[in-house]
Design a protein around this nucleic acid. Structure first.
Lengths: 222, 222
DNA sequence: AGAGGTATGTTGTATTTACAACAAAAGAGA
DNA sequence: TCTCTTTTGTTGTAAATACAACATACCTCT
Protein backbone atom coordinates (compact mmCIF):
# COMPACT_ATOMS: atom_id res chain seq x y z
CA UNK A 1 0.00 0.00 0.00
CA UNK A 2 2.72 2.44 1.00
CA UNK A 3 3.98 2.67 -2.58
CA UNK A 4 0.71 4.34 -3.55
CA UNK A 5 1.13 7.19 -1.07
CA UNK A 6 2.81 9.52 -3.58
CA UNK A 7 -0.16 8.94 -5.92
CA UNK A 8 -2.71 9.56 -3.18
CA UNK A 9 -0.91 12.67 -2.01
CA UNK A 10 -1.47 14.25 -5.43
CA UNK A 11 -5.20 13.54 -5.43
CA UNK A 12 -7.67 16.33 -4.65
CA UNK A 13 -9.31 13.99 -2.13
CA UNK A 14 -6.17 13.91 0.00
CA UNK A 15 -5.17 17.51 -0.60
CA UNK A 16 -3.49 19.07 2.43
CA UNK A 17 -2.67 15.69 3.93
CA UNK A 18 0.99 14.79 4.14
CA UNK A 19 2.34 11.47 2.97
CA UNK A 20 3.33 10.45 6.48
CA UNK A 21 -0.17 11.22 7.76
CA UNK A 22 -1.89 9.01 5.20
CA UNK A 23 -1.38 5.71 6.95
CA UNK A 24 -3.13 6.89 10.09
CA UNK A 25 -5.97 8.33 8.08
CA UNK A 26 -6.48 5.22 5.96
CA UNK A 27 -6.54 3.06 9.05
CA UNK A 28 -9.03 5.40 10.67
CA UNK A 29 -11.17 5.02 7.52
CA UNK A 30 -10.76 1.22 7.51
CA UNK A 31 -9.98 1.67 3.82
CA UNK A 32 -9.55 -1.62 2.01
CA UNK A 33 -7.69 -2.33 -1.20
CA UNK A 34 -9.02 -4.91 -3.62
CA UNK A 35 -7.20 -6.51 -6.53
CA UNK A 36 -8.91 -7.26 -9.83
CA UNK A 37 -7.97 -9.22 -12.92
CA UNK A 38 -7.62 -7.59 -16.31
CA UNK A 39 -11.28 -8.14 -17.14
CA UNK A 40 -13.30 -8.08 -13.97
CA UNK A 41 -16.49 -6.48 -12.76
CA UNK A 42 -15.92 -3.97 -9.96
CA UNK A 43 -19.51 -2.81 -9.62
CA UNK A 44 -22.72 -3.74 -11.40
CA UNK A 45 -25.70 -1.58 -12.27
CA UNK A 46 -28.32 -2.18 -9.62
CA UNK A 47 -25.70 -2.73 -6.93
CA UNK A 48 -26.03 -0.82 -3.70
CA UNK A 49 -22.74 0.90 -2.98
CA UNK A 50 -21.63 3.13 -0.13
CA UNK A 51 -18.01 3.17 -1.13
CA UNK A 52 -15.89 5.80 -2.75
CA UNK A 53 -13.52 4.03 -5.12
CA UNK A 54 -9.99 5.15 -5.91
CA UNK A 55 -8.10 3.59 -8.80
CA UNK A 56 -4.63 2.84 -7.37
CA UNK A 57 -3.27 1.03 -10.42
CA UNK A 58 -4.59 -0.20 -13.74
CA UNK A 59 -7.73 1.32 -15.21
CA UNK A 60 -11.51 0.90 -15.13
CA UNK A 61 -14.31 1.77 -17.51
CA UNK A 62 -17.66 3.19 -16.47
CA UNK A 63 -20.26 1.71 -18.80
CA UNK A 64 -23.95 2.47 -19.18
CA UNK A 65 -26.32 -0.04 -20.73
CA UNK A 66 -29.87 0.81 -21.77
CA UNK A 67 -32.78 -1.61 -21.85
CA UNK A 68 -32.19 -2.33 -25.53
CA UNK A 69 -28.68 -3.50 -24.68
CA UNK A 70 -26.81 -0.53 -26.17
CA UNK A 71 -23.53 0.08 -24.37
CA UNK A 72 -22.04 3.52 -23.88
CA UNK A 73 -18.61 4.03 -22.35
CA UNK A 74 -19.02 7.04 -20.09
CA UNK A 75 -15.46 7.29 -18.84
CA UNK A 76 -12.13 5.57 -18.54
CA UNK A 77 -10.57 6.12 -15.13
CA UNK A 78 -6.88 5.62 -14.48
CA UNK A 79 -4.62 5.68 -11.43
CA UNK A 80 -5.53 8.50 -9.04
CA UNK A 81 -9.09 8.88 -10.26
CA UNK A 82 -12.25 8.63 -8.20
CA UNK A 83 -15.56 6.89 -8.82
CA UNK A 84 -18.81 6.21 -7.04
CA UNK A 85 -18.60 9.30 -4.84
CA UNK A 86 -22.05 10.60 -5.79
CA UNK A 87 -23.61 7.25 -4.92
CA UNK A 88 -21.68 6.88 -1.70
CA UNK A 89 -22.57 10.36 -0.46
CA UNK A 90 -26.07 10.73 -1.89
CA UNK A 91 -29.43 9.41 -0.76
CA UNK A 92 -29.67 6.97 -3.67
CA UNK A 93 -27.02 4.31 -3.38
CA UNK A 94 -28.16 2.25 -6.38
CA UNK A 95 -25.68 2.39 -9.23
CA UNK A 96 -27.03 3.05 -12.75
CA UNK A 97 -23.75 1.99 -14.38
CA UNK A 98 -21.32 -0.90 -14.53
CA UNK A 99 -17.66 -0.50 -13.61
CA UNK A 100 -15.26 -2.92 -15.28
CA UNK A 101 -11.50 -3.19 -15.13
CA UNK A 102 -9.72 -2.97 -18.47
CA UNK A 103 -6.35 -3.74 -16.94
CA UNK A 104 -5.14 -5.67 -13.93
CA UNK A 105 -6.07 -3.16 -11.24
CA UNK A 106 -6.03 -2.29 -7.58
CA UNK A 107 -8.89 -0.30 -6.11
CA UNK A 108 -9.03 1.47 -2.77
CA UNK A 109 -12.51 1.35 -1.25
CA UNK A 110 -13.43 3.99 1.31
CA UNK A 111 -16.60 3.44 3.30
CA UNK A 112 -18.84 6.50 3.31
CA UNK A 113 -19.96 6.18 6.92
CA UNK A 114 -16.40 5.84 8.14
CA UNK A 115 -15.55 8.91 6.11
CA UNK A 116 -18.20 11.21 7.58
CA UNK A 117 -17.98 9.89 11.12
CA UNK A 118 -15.09 11.80 12.59
CA UNK A 119 -13.05 9.55 14.77
CA UNK A 120 -12.89 9.78 18.55
CA UNK A 121 -9.26 10.87 18.46
CA UNK A 122 -10.52 14.03 16.73
CA UNK A 123 -8.21 13.41 13.80
CA UNK A 124 -7.66 16.68 11.97
CA UNK A 125 -6.99 14.98 8.64
CA UNK A 126 -10.40 13.45 8.79
CA UNK A 127 -12.02 16.87 8.69
CA UNK A 128 -9.75 17.87 5.86
CA UNK A 129 -10.85 14.80 3.94
CA UNK A 130 -14.51 15.73 4.31
CA UNK A 131 -13.77 19.26 3.21
CA UNK A 132 -11.97 17.90 0.14
CA UNK A 133 -14.88 15.63 -0.70
CA UNK A 134 -17.25 18.58 -0.44
CA UNK A 135 -15.01 20.51 -2.80
CA UNK A 136 -14.81 17.67 -5.31
CA UNK A 137 -18.58 17.29 -5.44
CA UNK A 138 -19.06 21.06 -5.71
CA UNK A 139 -16.54 21.36 -8.54
CA UNK A 140 -18.17 18.52 -10.40
CA UNK A 141 -21.50 20.21 -9.90
CA UNK A 142 -20.19 23.35 -11.56
CA UNK A 143 -18.79 21.38 -14.49
CA UNK A 144 -21.98 19.43 -14.98
CA UNK A 145 -24.11 22.54 -14.75
CA UNK A 146 -22.05 24.28 -17.36
CA UNK A 147 -22.32 21.32 -19.69
CA UNK A 148 -26.08 21.11 -19.24
CA UNK A 149 -26.40 24.76 -20.02
CA UNK A 150 -24.69 24.10 -23.34
CA UNK A 151 -26.52 20.89 -24.19
CA UNK A 152 -29.85 22.56 -23.42
CA UNK A 153 -29.48 24.67 -26.54
CA UNK A 154 -31.38 23.36 -29.52
CA UNK A 155 -29.05 24.17 -32.39
CA UNK A 156 -25.39 23.60 -33.08
CA UNK A 157 -24.98 27.35 -33.43
CA UNK A 158 -26.42 28.08 -30.01
CA UNK A 159 -24.37 25.34 -28.41
CA UNK A 160 -21.24 26.81 -29.91
CA UNK A 161 -22.05 30.30 -28.71
CA UNK A 162 -22.87 29.02 -25.22
CA UNK A 163 -19.61 27.09 -25.04
CA UNK A 164 -17.48 29.91 -26.39
CA UNK A 165 -19.13 32.42 -24.07
CA UNK A 166 -18.33 30.21 -21.09
CA UNK A 167 -14.73 29.82 -22.22
CA UNK A 168 -14.33 33.56 -22.69
CA UNK A 169 -15.79 34.14 -19.25
CA UNK A 170 -13.42 31.58 -17.77
CA UNK A 171 -10.45 33.19 -19.52
CA UNK A 172 -11.61 36.65 -18.50
CA UNK A 173 -10.98 37.68 -22.08
CA UNK A 174 -12.88 37.70 -25.37
CA UNK A 175 -9.77 36.16 -26.90
CA UNK A 176 -8.88 32.64 -25.75
CA UNK A 177 -7.70 29.14 -26.65
CA UNK A 178 -9.87 26.05 -26.37
CA UNK A 179 -8.51 22.69 -25.15
CA UNK A 180 -10.20 20.66 -27.91
CA UNK A 181 -9.62 19.95 -31.55
CA UNK A 182 -12.66 20.05 -33.83
CA UNK A 183 -13.71 16.45 -33.34
CA UNK A 184 -13.32 16.65 -29.58
CA UNK A 185 -15.28 19.89 -29.47
CA UNK A 186 -18.06 18.32 -31.54
CA UNK A 187 -18.11 15.34 -29.15
CA UNK A 188 -18.29 17.65 -26.14
CA UNK A 189 -21.14 19.63 -27.68
CA UNK A 190 -22.79 16.40 -28.86
CA UNK A 191 -23.11 17.56 -32.46
CA UNK A 192 -21.80 16.56 -35.86
CA UNK A 193 -18.28 17.72 -36.58
CA UNK A 194 -18.83 18.88 -40.15
CA UNK A 195 -22.05 20.67 -39.28
CA UNK A 196 -20.20 22.37 -36.45
CA UNK A 197 -17.30 23.43 -38.63
CA UNK A 198 -19.83 24.85 -41.05
CA UNK A 199 -21.45 26.81 -38.28
CA UNK A 200 -18.08 28.18 -37.19
CA UNK A 201 -17.50 29.41 -40.73
CA UNK A 202 -20.90 31.11 -40.81
CA UNK A 203 -20.27 32.82 -37.48
CA UNK A 204 -16.94 34.01 -38.79
CA UNK A 205 -18.49 35.30 -42.01
CA UNK A 206 -21.13 37.10 -39.98
CA UNK A 207 -18.42 38.82 -38.00
CA UNK A 208 -19.44 37.24 -34.69
CA UNK A 209 -16.03 35.75 -34.09
CA UNK A 210 -12.50 35.29 -35.34
CA UNK A 211 -10.97 31.84 -35.46
CA UNK A 212 -7.59 30.36 -36.08
CA UNK A 213 -7.33 26.73 -35.11
CA UNK A 214 -7.86 26.56 -31.37
CA UNK A 215 -7.75 30.29 -30.91
CA UNK A 216 -11.09 32.06 -30.80
CA UNK A 217 -12.09 35.65 -30.32
CA UNK A 218 -15.64 36.83 -29.74
CA UNK A 219 -16.35 40.14 -31.43
CA UNK A 220 -18.75 42.44 -29.68
CA UNK A 221 -20.62 44.66 -32.06
CA UNK A 222 -23.44 46.56 -30.44
CA UNK B 1 -35.76 34.71 12.66
CA UNK B 2 -37.38 32.18 14.99
CA UNK B 3 -40.52 32.10 12.85
CA UNK B 4 -38.49 30.54 10.04
CA UNK B 5 -37.39 27.58 12.14
CA UNK B 6 -40.26 25.33 11.01
CA UNK B 7 -39.24 26.07 7.41
CA UNK B 8 -35.57 25.36 8.06
CA UNK B 9 -36.38 22.17 9.91
CA UNK B 10 -37.99 20.78 6.75
CA UNK B 11 -34.96 21.55 4.59
CA UNK B 12 -32.56 18.77 3.61
CA UNK B 13 -29.71 21.02 4.77
CA UNK B 14 -30.98 20.94 8.35
CA UNK B 15 -32.21 17.36 8.29
CA UNK B 16 -31.79 15.62 11.63
CA UNK B 17 -31.50 18.91 13.50
CA UNK B 18 -34.32 19.74 15.89
CA UNK B 19 -36.06 23.07 15.90
CA UNK B 20 -34.74 23.92 19.35
CA UNK B 21 -31.19 23.14 18.27
CA UNK B 22 -31.29 25.51 15.31
CA UNK B 23 -30.60 28.70 17.19
CA UNK B 24 -27.34 27.39 18.60
CA UNK B 25 -26.29 26.10 15.22
CA UNK B 26 -27.10 29.32 13.39
CA UNK B 27 -25.19 31.34 15.94
CA UNK B 28 -22.25 28.97 15.64
CA UNK B 29 -22.39 29.54 11.86
CA UNK B 30 -22.66 33.31 12.28
CA UNK B 31 -25.47 33.02 9.75
CA UNK B 32 -26.85 36.39 8.72
CA UNK B 33 -30.22 37.24 7.28
CA UNK B 34 -30.55 39.95 4.66
CA UNK B 35 -33.72 41.65 3.48
CA UNK B 36 -34.30 42.58 -0.14
CA UNK B 37 -36.88 44.67 -1.99
CA UNK B 38 -39.19 43.18 -4.57
CA UNK B 39 -36.72 43.83 -7.38
CA UNK B 40 -33.20 43.66 -6.05
CA UNK B 41 -29.94 42.07 -7.03
CA UNK B 42 -28.79 39.43 -4.57
CA UNK B 43 -25.70 38.32 -6.49
CA UNK B 44 -24.18 39.39 -9.78
CA UNK B 45 -22.33 37.31 -12.36
CA UNK B 46 -18.63 37.80 -11.74
CA UNK B 47 -19.12 38.20 -8.00
CA UNK B 48 -16.97 36.14 -5.71
CA UNK B 49 -19.20 34.33 -3.26
CA UNK B 50 -18.44 31.96 -0.42
CA UNK B 51 -21.95 31.90 0.93
CA UNK B 52 -24.67 29.33 0.76
CA UNK B 53 -27.95 31.18 0.36
CA UNK B 54 -31.28 30.03 1.76
CA UNK B 55 -34.49 31.69 0.64
CA UNK B 56 -36.42 32.31 3.88
CA UNK B 57 -39.30 34.24 2.34
CA UNK B 58 -40.20 35.65 -1.05
CA UNK B 59 -38.55 34.25 -4.18
CA UNK B 60 -35.48 34.73 -6.34
CA UNK B 61 -34.64 34.02 -9.94
CA UNK B 62 -31.35 32.61 -11.16
CA UNK B 63 -30.62 34.24 -14.50
CA UNK B 64 -27.89 33.53 -17.05
CA UNK B 65 -26.90 36.16 -19.58
CA UNK B 66 -24.70 35.42 -22.60
CA UNK B 67 -22.40 37.91 -24.30
CA UNK B 68 -25.08 38.82 -26.82
CA UNK B 69 -27.35 39.85 -23.98
CA UNK B 70 -29.75 36.93 -24.19
CA UNK B 71 -31.30 36.18 -20.82
CA UNK B 72 -32.26 32.68 -19.71
CA UNK B 73 -34.09 32.05 -16.47
CA UNK B 74 -32.47 28.95 -15.05
CA UNK B 75 -34.58 28.60 -11.95
CA UNK B 76 -37.06 30.23 -9.65
CA UNK B 77 -36.30 29.50 -6.02
CA UNK B 78 -38.87 29.89 -3.29
CA UNK B 79 -38.87 29.65 0.50
CA UNK B 80 -36.76 26.76 1.75
CA UNK B 81 -34.64 26.49 -1.37
CA UNK B 82 -30.87 26.71 -1.57
CA UNK B 83 -28.54 28.52 -3.96
CA UNK B 84 -24.86 29.17 -4.43
CA UNK B 85 -23.76 25.97 -2.70
CA UNK B 86 -21.57 24.77 -5.58
CA UNK B 87 -19.74 28.11 -5.63
CA UNK B 88 -19.39 28.31 -1.88
CA UNK B 89 -17.98 24.79 -1.59
CA UNK B 90 -16.02 24.55 -4.84
CA UNK B 91 -12.62 25.86 -5.86
CA UNK B 92 -14.12 28.42 -8.22
CA UNK B 93 -16.05 31.04 -6.28
CA UNK B 94 -16.90 33.24 -9.27
CA UNK B 95 -20.58 33.19 -10.10
CA UNK B 96 -21.61 32.74 -13.74
CA UNK B 97 -25.19 33.82 -13.06
CA UNK B 98 -27.20 36.64 -11.60
CA UNK B 99 -29.59 36.16 -8.70
CA UNK B 100 -32.48 38.61 -8.49
CA UNK B 101 -35.42 38.81 -6.14
CA UNK B 102 -38.83 38.71 -7.77
CA UNK B 103 -40.62 39.35 -4.51
CA UNK B 104 -39.79 41.12 -1.28
CA UNK B 105 -37.47 38.51 0.20
CA UNK B 106 -35.35 37.47 3.14
CA UNK B 107 -32.21 35.46 2.52
CA UNK B 108 -30.12 33.54 5.03
CA UNK B 109 -26.43 33.64 4.20
CA UNK B 110 -24.20 30.89 5.58
CA UNK B 111 -20.47 31.38 5.33
CA UNK B 112 -18.71 28.38 3.85
CA UNK B 113 -15.66 28.53 6.11
CA UNK B 114 -17.81 28.76 9.21
CA UNK B 115 -19.74 25.78 7.94
CA UNK B 116 -16.78 23.46 7.42
CA UNK B 117 -14.84 24.58 10.47
CA UNK B 118 -16.33 22.53 13.27
CA UNK B 119 -16.64 24.63 16.38
CA UNK B 120 -14.55 24.16 19.49
CA UNK B 121 -17.56 23.05 21.49
CA UNK B 122 -17.61 20.01 19.20
CA UNK B 123 -21.18 20.76 18.23
CA UNK B 124 -22.79 17.58 16.91
CA UNK B 125 -25.24 19.46 14.75
CA UNK B 126 -22.38 21.03 12.93
CA UNK B 127 -21.18 17.64 11.71
CA UNK B 128 -24.71 16.74 10.75
CA UNK B 129 -24.89 19.94 8.69
CA UNK B 130 -21.74 19.06 6.78
CA UNK B 131 -23.04 15.56 6.16
CA UNK B 132 -26.29 17.04 4.84
CA UNK B 133 -24.40 19.40 2.55
CA UNK B 134 -22.38 16.50 1.19
CA UNK B 135 -25.61 14.63 0.54
CA UNK B 136 -27.21 17.59 -1.21
CA UNK B 137 -24.25 18.03 -3.54
CA UNK B 138 -24.07 14.29 -4.22
CA UNK B 139 -27.79 14.10 -5.01
CA UNK B 140 -27.52 17.06 -7.33
CA UNK B 141 -24.58 15.38 -9.01
CA UNK B 142 -26.67 12.32 -9.70
CA UNK B 143 -29.50 14.41 -11.12
CA UNK B 144 -27.19 16.43 -13.33
CA UNK B 145 -25.40 13.33 -14.57
CA UNK B 146 -28.65 11.71 -15.49
CA UNK B 147 -29.77 14.79 -17.36
CA UNK B 148 -26.50 15.03 -19.27
CA UNK B 149 -26.79 11.42 -20.27
CA UNK B 150 -30.13 12.22 -21.83
CA UNK B 151 -29.14 15.51 -23.45
CA UNK B 152 -26.05 13.86 -24.94
CA UNK B 153 -28.26 11.90 -27.31
CA UNK B 154 -28.57 13.40 -30.74
CA UNK B 155 -32.16 12.69 -31.63
CA UNK B 156 -35.49 13.23 -29.93
CA UNK B 157 -36.11 9.50 -30.16
CA UNK B 158 -32.90 8.61 -28.36
CA UNK B 159 -33.49 11.24 -25.70
CA UNK B 160 -36.91 9.82 -25.07
CA UNK B 161 -35.61 6.27 -24.78
CA UNK B 162 -32.81 7.37 -22.45
CA UNK B 163 -35.27 9.24 -20.24
CA UNK B 164 -37.82 6.46 -20.15
CA UNK B 165 -35.16 3.86 -19.43
CA UNK B 166 -33.94 5.90 -16.48
CA UNK B 167 -37.47 6.29 -15.16
CA UNK B 168 -38.15 2.57 -15.48
CA UNK B 169 -34.91 1.84 -13.66
CA UNK B 170 -35.86 4.28 -10.92
CA UNK B 171 -39.30 2.73 -10.59
CA UNK B 172 -37.81 -0.75 -10.65
CA UNK B 173 -40.51 -1.63 -13.16
CA UNK B 174 -40.99 -1.44 -16.92
CA UNK B 175 -44.37 0.13 -16.17
CA UNK B 176 -44.29 3.55 -14.54
CA UNK B 177 -45.70 7.09 -14.34
CA UNK B 178 -43.76 10.19 -15.29
CA UNK B 179 -44.04 13.47 -13.34
CA UNK B 180 -44.32 15.66 -16.44
CA UNK B 181 -46.98 16.56 -18.92
CA UNK B 182 -45.98 16.62 -22.58
CA UNK B 183 -44.79 20.21 -22.66
CA UNK B 184 -42.79 19.81 -19.46
CA UNK B 185 -41.24 16.60 -20.75
CA UNK B 186 -40.28 18.34 -24.00
CA UNK B 187 -38.73 21.17 -21.99
CA UNK B 188 -36.79 18.71 -19.84
CA UNK B 189 -35.50 16.86 -22.89
CA UNK B 190 -34.86 20.17 -24.68
CA UNK B 191 -36.84 19.22 -27.76
CA UNK B 192 -39.94 20.37 -29.57
CA UNK B 193 -43.19 19.18 -28.07
CA UNK B 194 -44.95 18.23 -31.28
CA UNK B 195 -41.90 16.45 -32.66
CA UNK B 196 -41.64 14.57 -29.38
CA UNK B 197 -45.30 13.56 -29.39
CA UNK B 198 -44.78 12.31 -32.92
CA UNK B 199 -41.86 10.23 -31.81
CA UNK B 200 -43.88 8.76 -28.96
CA UNK B 201 -46.52 7.70 -31.47
CA UNK B 202 -43.90 6.05 -33.69
CA UNK B 203 -42.39 4.17 -30.76
CA UNK B 204 -45.86 2.98 -29.83
CA UNK B 205 -46.63 1.88 -33.39
CA UNK B 206 -43.33 0.02 -33.48
CA UNK B 207 -44.29 -1.83 -30.35
CA UNK B 208 -41.45 -0.42 -28.27
CA UNK B 209 -43.76 1.02 -25.65
CA UNK B 210 -47.30 1.46 -24.48
CA UNK B 211 -48.54 4.89 -23.47
CA UNK B 212 -51.56 6.34 -21.82
CA UNK B 213 -51.11 9.90 -20.69
CA UNK B 214 -48.40 9.90 -18.05
CA UNK B 215 -48.29 6.14 -17.80
CA UNK B 216 -45.60 4.42 -19.86
CA UNK B 217 -44.58 0.83 -20.28
CA UNK B 218 -41.44 -0.31 -22.03
CA UNK B 219 -41.95 -3.52 -23.97
CA UNK B 220 -39.00 -5.86 -24.13
CA UNK B 221 -39.00 -7.93 -27.27
CA UNK B 222 -35.79 -9.81 -27.78
C1' DA C 1 -74.94 19.38 -19.76
C1' DG C 2 -72.51 23.06 -21.76
C1' DA C 3 -68.80 26.49 -22.13
C1' DG C 4 -64.21 27.74 -21.76
C1' DG C 5 -59.73 26.55 -21.02
C1' DT C 6 -55.83 23.53 -21.23
C1' DA C 7 -53.39 19.52 -22.80
C1' DT C 8 -52.47 16.47 -26.42
C1' DG C 9 -52.29 14.74 -31.09
C1' DT C 10 -51.72 15.61 -36.08
C1' DT C 11 -50.16 17.58 -40.31
C1' DG C 12 -47.39 20.36 -43.74
C1' DT C 13 -43.48 23.17 -44.62
C1' DA C 14 -39.11 25.55 -43.97
C1' DT C 15 -34.96 24.93 -41.67
C1' DT C 16 -31.33 22.46 -39.66
C1' DT C 17 -28.76 18.50 -38.95
C1' DA C 18 -26.44 14.11 -39.80
C1' DC C 19 -24.00 11.52 -42.81
C1' DA C 20 -20.93 10.45 -46.39
C1' DA C 21 -17.54 11.51 -49.40
C1' DC C 22 -13.98 14.16 -50.72
C1' DA C 23 -10.58 18.23 -50.92
C1' DA C 24 -7.28 20.93 -48.67
C1' DA C 25 -4.17 21.94 -45.08
C1' DA C 26 -1.13 20.78 -41.36
C1' DG C 27 1.94 17.76 -39.00
C1' DA C 28 5.17 13.77 -38.44
C1' DG C 29 8.73 10.86 -39.83
C1' DA C 30 12.04 8.91 -42.98
C1' DT D 1 11.83 17.08 -49.51
C1' DC D 2 8.57 13.63 -50.09
C1' DT D 3 5.21 10.53 -48.23
C1' DC D 4 1.93 9.16 -45.07
C1' DT D 5 -1.29 10.35 -41.59
C1' DT D 6 -4.25 13.31 -39.19
C1' DT D 7 -7.00 17.23 -38.91
C1' DT D 8 -9.89 20.59 -40.85
C1' DG D 9 -12.87 22.46 -44.34
C1' DT D 10 -16.43 21.85 -48.01
C1' DT D 11 -20.32 20.12 -50.45
C1' DG D 12 -24.61 17.49 -51.63
C1' DT D 13 -28.29 14.70 -50.07
C1' DA D 14 -31.37 12.30 -47.04
C1' DA D 15 -33.35 12.56 -42.68
C1' DA D 16 -34.85 14.80 -38.57
C1' DT D 17 -36.36 18.81 -36.28
C1' DA D 18 -38.65 23.21 -35.31
C1' DC D 19 -42.40 25.83 -36.09
C1' DA D 20 -47.02 27.02 -36.99
C1' DA D 21 -51.58 25.97 -37.39
C1' DC D 22 -55.25 23.34 -36.38
C1' DA D 23 -58.12 19.23 -34.60
C1' DT D 24 -59.35 16.53 -30.87
C1' DA D 25 -59.57 15.04 -26.25
C1' DC D 26 -59.80 16.13 -21.46
C1' DC D 27 -60.81 18.84 -17.36
C1' DT D 28 -63.18 22.15 -14.50
C1' DC D 29 -66.51 25.18 -13.19
C1' DT D 30 -71.06 26.82 -13.15
Amino acid sequence: MKNFYPLLKKMPLFNGIKENELSGLLECLSAKTKKFDKTATVLMAGDVSSFVGVVLSGAVQVVKEDFLGNRTILAKLEAGELFGEAFACGKNHILPVNVYTVEKSEILMINYRKMITTCTSSCVFHNKLIENMLGILADKNQMLNQKIEILSRRSTREKLIAYLTAQAQKAGNASFMIPFNRQELADYLCVDRSAMTNEIRKLREEGVLQVERNHFELLHHN
